[in-house]
Each structure stands twice: as structure tokens, then as C-alpha cells.
Design a protein around this nucleic acid. Structure first.
Lengths: 196, 196, 196, 196
DNA sequence: TTTTAATCGAGACGGTACGTCGCGTCTTGTT
DNA sequence: AACAAGACGCGACGTACCGTCTCGATTAAAA
């Protein structure tokens, strides 16, 4: 969604790209996604609107890009001994990353994604699917090594687990308490692991 | 969020209230929530903008009210023999109600609710919480009659079930397949029922 | 423009009439004629809009009525020994009455009268013409007693004198200096009096 | 009050400026100054409201600018043999220019100027003062060449003459008859010229 | 004493216009 | 080409007043 252009003429300044993203993210953090308008980003960064539109189709996309860049490294995927432990660790990172202002911004972004296909694609393909794919593969390995019973349905279990997390964020607007992650993961896997 | 006013002066015309709501909903269904602007609702209904603003603070609230009025009766709560059957029936109604254009509109509304507290309250208190309360009470009765094991945690199980539904709607944008409801409910309750 | 109504039914409260006028005038003095809206007069007086519209056709008319009531007694017409002295005294009263905030309000009212026939009529028939008629009659008496030459044209002389006053007020926005009244009256009458 | 802007960025289209002015003037002539609203000017000209507000602060200012552009050339200043002849010719042009719809529009504009400082300044500095300055200078030359007596006070004489004209227009709402100009000028200058 | 008729307060209502914000596109001159 | 600057058409916002209307509650003279 960026600096891919022809070879002739003056090249786009990557510093400008970064600056736009930073300013957009700052504005969104400080006043909600509605505060990050192209108009304001231009003004606060000293960059012309045309320069912005050359890189992104709308303001929310800039914020989304900035947000994904920021949140990515925070949700470490790190495979543990068992699938349950792996998922618990993984979800815990997710839940921690979404505490406070970052969760609010994600809410705003997902909100905007409901009426904007570009945002939806970005959100889905850059945040949701990659992590789900990793988890799905871990499922297969767990079944292969008979840690999980063969009939364990990754899609259902992952829908339940991720669902519970995002449900609290977007739907019931409830905070995450300390035992939440353990409880949902345990419940979703109940009776599917071969160990006692 | 509406005709709740004092006894003095000329009373608000309830017919006008209904008309505004209907027009708003029609516009939202035909072109997304962005199509339901106060300007357009006024134009299409022959009602003055001031008359609209006297009842609702913004266009999305009108659509939300209309939507909640419409969807309410569709999600029948109807208690069956067992808690599992009750929930399956209940969730099936929900899932059916949210197929097609109604699901899209709910997505838009929940999207808007992420940046608008009034919408969020309406959505939460008029749609989410009443149903959750009914389910919570059914849980207690099921435990009382020893259909459910005493350690069954209603909050966790309901987060998982409702979460999975709304996750598909808002986050993974995946359709509901035929066995989905049975699968998620069974998985969430696994090992918690006393019958075989 | 007021309390003239049928005999049956509840009579209009003359106290209310006075209150409306007072509030309107106060608003106009404190924030210009644009501050005296029917809406605001109603709010500040605790009187209903219908009650106001039953008495006057618009806000400016209320202010005009209040203003004319107030300014009338200030512009004393008081016939002196000679026509020149009479006019000088008369104009001096006018000029004094129009100093400060009263002049500003008259400017606003005459401004509004340019686009509002009702105001124009009120202004003309209640303020301008009565005084002009008195002056015209004084002219005739002055000619009759050979104080003024027979060819003295009252219309021209009065247009010049009154014109100069209102010109400073509405057109050149210049203040009235001490000798102004004497100078314009003397100049307008030059060579028309029979003495010295 | 217009195209006075820096050199940077896309320049304002002067054609658009002229178009706006023309449409505003047409609207004002056909339905009074109240007919020339920014909304209507935008609609009738196909120009966006923002484009209009970028040039003028309100509708009346546009009409004023258009009016001054139009009336300027009509009030020819053309110095004759004597000061009296010069002024008569000058005032005759003014009176002729203000006959009919143009006089009505000026009335509306001056009316609006009573509550709007920007209009007042424009009217004063672009219409009133330049002509008054020319006349004042002609006075000085007439005194220098002993055509006028040295004690002739330009300010008083001009207040009387211009005053009489505008008084008929704004205050007494009386038409200009054929001999009016000669009469007021002769009367105002009476005894001040050195020739018989 | 009961009508009957108008007044009064409150506030709804359809309108018109306001001035502003943000959008995404465009046209300048400069780098 | 990219870039800063800013014009431009557009759509919508939420507000202010307008003058009219519909309520229920007074108030006074006529029946």
C-alpha cells in the first residue's frame, strides 16, 4: 500500500512516508480515529495532501498501516511445549497488546473496517489471518504428535477463543480480567487433549 | 432516545417518529449506513431536520433504533428442555436474523458504535445485555436442576458462544455454515452437562 | 400596531405588551438589532412566541415601537421667536437624542426599514413626518409675518437641514461637532430672512 | 475584499470571481438584497459555497462589490467652468444613477451597512469619500481663483447637498423631481459665489 | 352558573440559510 | 516525477430563527 512506483522522475521520499504515518497515528491516539483526517495530517506534518493521496487512499488506511506496524511485534508468536500453552501465551500477548489506548484504536479501526473494504482487507490479511494460519499449523502438528485428539476442529476452537477476546473488545465492551485467557482456552480445548 | 418528553406544549407526533425511523432504515438498507444521512432522511421523509434532531442526536442513532425494533422480535427467546437446546435454538435465531442485509447493517452499526458512546449504549443495553441476562438465568436454573455441573461458568461459556458468532460477523467476515451453531455450542459446553 | 381587539374572551394583558417592548429594547441596545430576535425576546421575557406575534408582525417592529416611545419626548418641539431659532433648537434636540447608543439603534432601525415596508411606514409616519409638518407650518407662519421672504422653499430648506443630520448618521458616519447645528441651519436659510 | 492572495498554490480563478459577483448582483436586483443569499448564489452560479466564502465574508459584501463596480463609472466627475456647475453636474449624475432599481439596491446596501462594519467601510471608502475628496479639492481651487468667498465651508455645504440627496433616498423615501438638484445646490451655495 | 371565546405558556413543526469541515481532485510553481 | 500550497466542487453537518401550529390551562364577558 505504499512506495511502489516507476523508476523515472523524482523518487518518493521514504522519510515523508514515515512522517505521515507517525503523525496520523499520533492524531488517532490523541483524539480517536476521527481526529486523523487527511486535512489535519497534512497540516500537522507539513506535507501536502497530494503527497498523502499518492500513498494511501484515505486517512483510516494510514492509521491502519501505522497501527499494524506497531502492534505486529507485540503479539509474539512463540511455540511452547503444548498447543494449549502456546495458545495461552499467544492470546495473552494479544490481550496485553490491546489494553488501554491500543485497544480503543483497534476498536475504531475495526469499526471503520465494517464500512470500508480496503481497511477490512488490510486488517484481515495483515493481522488476523497470519496469526490464525500459524495457530492452524500448530494444531496439525499437535494432532500429528497425538497431543490433540484427531477430531479436534481447529476452526471451531479458534473461532471460540479469538471470538471471546474480540467479543469483549467490540461487543460487550468488558475488560479482560486476570484469569480470562486461561479460562477461555481451557474451556475451548476441554476434553480434546490427551494428557490428564 | 426518543418521544420521552414532558406534558407541556404541543406533543411530538408519534407518526412522524415512526416515519423518520422507517425512512432511515430503508436508506441504510439500500446503501449502507453512510447513505442514511440526516439530510437525506429529512428530504426523503418530508420532515424538517430540526424535527429529526429534536428526537435523535445523529443519523446512526435513528438507524440503530429502527434496527433494534426490527430485529428484536426475530431473536425469539424460547426455553427448551435443556440448556444446550435452548441456547442452540436461541443462537440459531440470532444467526438467521443476521444473514444477508441485516448482518451487513449490524456490522455497520456496531462499527459506528466503536466511535460513538450513545450507539454503544443502545446496542449493549437493548440488544446484547437483555439476551445475555436471559441466558444467564437459564444457566442458574440448569445448575439448580443438576442438568449442568455446578462449576459451569456462564460468563465464560457465553463469551465463547456469542464471541464465535460475532467474530465471524465482524472480524473474520466468514459466513455461517449449517453445522456452525451446533458445533460451537457443543464445544463450549463440553463436559459440563450431566447427561451422557 | 397593538392592543386593538374584540370584546369577548380573555383580554390581552397590557403589562405583557409593555414587558415585551422593554425586553426587546434592552436586547437591541445591548447587542444591536440582530440581538432582538422573537425567539430571544420570548425567552428573556418568559412570554410565548404566539403572544408576541399576536401583537407585532416581527421583532424589528417591536424595537421600533419601543424606540419611538422612548425618543418621542426627547425631541421637544418648542416654537421660539424666529423660525431659525426654532429650527436650531429643534435640531439640537434631535442631534442630542441621537448621540451614543440611541443613534446606533436608530441606524439599525433605519437600516432594517430599507428592506421592510412596515418599519419604513412606522419610522416615516411616527418620527419623520410629524416633525416635518410642524416645521412646515412654522415656515408658513414665518412667511405670513414677513420674517421669511416669500420665495423661501420649506421643502428644500428642510431637506438640506434634516438631510445633513441624517447624512452624518447613516452615510458618512461622522460625529456631530458643537457648531454643526448652527452652521447648517444658518447656511440653509442664508439670505431668506428679512432681518439685518 | 477579494483576489488579494499570495503567490503560492493554485491561483484563484478571476473568472469565477466575476461570475459570483454577477450572479449576486442579478439576484439582488431581481428580488432585493435578501434574495442574494450565499446559498442561492452558489446554486445559480454552479460555484461551491466554500469558493465564495474564500473571497467574501458574506453575501451582502459580494453585492456591494458588484454594485460599486457598476455604479462607479456612472457617476462621472467632470470639472466644469464654475464650482456650482461642477457640483450640479456631478449630483445630477448621482441622482440619475440612483433612479429606479439601482436606488433601491443602494438603499438595501446602506441598510445592511448600518449593522455590518465591513459593508460600511466599503461603502464609505469606495463610494462616498473619493467623490467628496474630489469636490473638496474643487472647492479649494474655486476659492483660490476667487470664484468662491474665502469663508465658504466645504464640509457644511457638501453635508447639506449630499445630505439632501441621501435623505430623500433613505429617510423620506421621496422621489427626485426635475428641479431638485438645481434648487439644493443653489440654496447651499447662496451668497458664497462672487459673480452676480 | 354555565357556556363561549380569546389569551397565554410551552413547545412541535416545516423551512431557509448559515458558516464550517472534510473529502478527493485540480492547478500552480519549485525541486 | 515528486512536492508544498492552495483552489475547487461537493456533501453533510448541527444551529439559529422564522412564522405557524397544536396542546392544555386561564380568564373574563355573555348566555
Amino acid at each position: 500500500m505504499e512506495d511502489v512506483v516507476g523508476t523515472k522522475g523524482r523518487p518518493r521520499d521514504p522519510e515523508t512516508t514515515r512522517l505521515i504515518q507517525k503523525v496520523a497515528l499520533d492524531l488517532a491516539y490523541s483524539g480517536g480515529i476521527g481526529n486523523a483526517t487527511v486535512e489535519r495530517i497534512a497540516e500537522h506534518s507539513g506535507v501536502a495532501k497530494t503527497t498523502i493521496y499518492r500513498r494511501w487512499p484515505n486517512a483510516a488506511s494510514i492509521v491502519m498501516d501505522g497501527f499494524l506496524d506497531e502492534i505486529g511485534p507485540l503479539i509474539v508468536y512463540d511455540e511452547k511445549r503444548s498447543i494449549v500453552t502456546t495458545l495461552k501465551s499467544n492470546i495473552r500477548h494479544l490481550v496485553n497488546a490491546l489494553k488501554g489506548r491500543r485497544g480503543d484504536l483497534l476498536r475504531h479501526l475495526v469499526g471503520a473496517a465494517q464500512t470500508n473494504d480496503e481497511l477490512r482487507e488490510a486488517f484481515l490479511h495483515q493481522l488476523i489471518e497470519p496469526r490464525r494460519t500459524l495457530a492452524r499449523e500448530a494444531f496439525q502438528r499437535a494432532i500429528a504428535r497425538t497431543e490433540l485428539r484427531a477430531e479436534a476442529d481447529a476452526e471451531i476452537i479458534l473461532d471460540l477463543i479469538y471470538g471471546a477476546v474480540y467479543y469483549r473488545l467490540f461487543v460487550s465492551f468488558a475488560p479482560f480480567h486476570a484469569k480470562f485467557v486461561d479460562q477461555i482456552v481451557d474451556r475451548a480445548f476441554h476434553g480434546m487433549t490427551t494428557d490428564p
